[in-house]
Nucleic acid binder design. Sequence first.
DNA 1: TCAAGATAGTTGGAAACTGAGACGATTTGT
DNA 2: ACAAATCGTCTCAGTTTCCAACTATCTTGA
Lengths: 154, 154
Amino acid sequence: MTTITCMVEEERQDLAALLHRLAKALVAAELPLLERHGLGMWAYVVLTELSRGAAPTQLALAKAVDVDKTKMVAIIDGMEAEGLVSRRPDPDDRRARIIEPTAEGRKRWRGARAAIRRLEDDFLAELPPTRRATMLAALRDLSGEPLARLTVTP
Amino acid sequence: MTTITCMVEEERQDLAALLHRLAKALVAAELPLLERHGLGMWAYVVLTELSRGAAPTQLALAKAVDVDKTKMVAIIDGMEAEGLVSRRPDPDDRRARIIEPTAEGRKRWRGARAAIRRLEDDFLAELPPTRRATMLAALRDLSGEPLARLTVTP
DNA sequence: TCAAGATAGTTGGAAACTGAGACGATTTGT
DNA sequence: ACAAATCGTCTCAGTTTCCAACTATCTTGA
């Protein structure tokens, strides 16, 4: 008698596609919230980066949020026109401009972030607490060193 | 003596931003693999959907992979020109075209998927097995009903 | 039955985004 | 002091995205 071991293929779907779909749906759901608080997506992303405390130059900001520096010009232009950020010459390097959020920028960002946080908490409420915590921790871990290794070793 | 309870704000970063960055980096890392197997990103996504077994019409395909139907025309045009899929009139509805992968399309897709699977497995190897399994299961769960609820209830 | 409306695929064009190149003003290295 | 590199900006071409039409076909309701 022969024993046949049937190796069931783990029909996992592509991780990239899965993450992409989730991110796309979340962004689509959050865009109306942002606009209700008077912010576009890029403005929110920039303000989020600025909320980390440091006062970066325009180029550092572009790298931090991963957009082209030529695009950052237009983003900051718009935000400055709306009074969300201010450009200030860097005293240590007169080529560079230091970007800082205004009081209004901070205010709108806090409102928008709270709304987004509520939506995401609601979205995540589907999962039991321990699984949710494990997943968030795993995602955070992956977005660190493993992600960096991806981009340098093609 | 007074006891001060310090509520440490869980400084979680935005889930959408986190997922977006991960997806973007993964896609960027996988694009060279795809092109090495003679596939573009859209061709791979379409072939992946076709591999589910059903033979969908062009419109059903567009909805399944979430692109505009007008863009699907160009995608299928290119794939047909490369001999990756075939257009066949739907016998039940002469307006519709049924899209089917060719042998060559299936072959290239299998090769590309294997390469992608290897890269993703390597990427996920950073996590301990149980955490990885929990995370993947959680992501899969979220991409089902919770995601659908997001898009209809803004 | 048959006329009106809806639908599948296609085409074309407008608007937004992306990415590369160049340039002036400035800094850095030698 | 001088060459090379860098920061912010501008411009321009190539793409993608979205919307409005159009043809051919299907479906529905009087």
